[in-house]
């Protein structure tokens, strides 16, 4: 069973690029364009890792992380946030919401893969 990674981002470009990188590396990738859509998708389809943007319409990334953490299925699933922010505040807010870690945009493909590997094994 390949590892399933869910990517959540309102930017098509990011979805395409992150998705491409992960698919090339053999991951199974599922996508959603905002938190609300992701929640619906992930309620029906389990992911081993979730990568989410923070600032999105309908439901932002932090809310998504909190909602997922409240679900038994995603209680300890690695959830990575995509962020361009260098500041600690964002990371701490993410951490408080239950995020596992972060991926800094613009991402380096090798770094992305090593981070996913670090949290998903």
């Amino acid at each position: 069973m390949p590892i399933t990674v869910a990517i959540v981002d309102d930017s098509r470009t990011m979805l395409d690029m992150v998705g491409y990188t992960l698919r090339e590396a053999g991951y199974n990738v599922i996508e959603a364009e905002d938190g609300q859509q992701a929640l619906t998708m992930l309620s029906g389809q389990a992911a081993n890792v979730v990568i989410t943007d923070l600032n999105m319409p309908n439901m932002d990334g932090l809310t998504l992380i909190r909602e997922l953490r409240a679900m038994a299925t995603y209680k300890s699933t690695p959830i990575l946030m995509l962020t361009t922010e260098a500041d600690r505040e964002k990371k701490e807010a993410g951490r408080a919401a239950g995020a596992t870690g972060w991926i800094v945009k613009p991402f380096n493909p090798d770094k992305l893969l090593s981070v996913v590997k670090k949290v998903a094994g």
Partner: peptide
């Protein structure tokens, strides 16, 4: 499974 989560609204 979290009930709140199942808001298959406009997504």
């Amino acid at each position: 499974a979290a009930k709140k989560a199942v808001q298959a609204t406009k997504s």
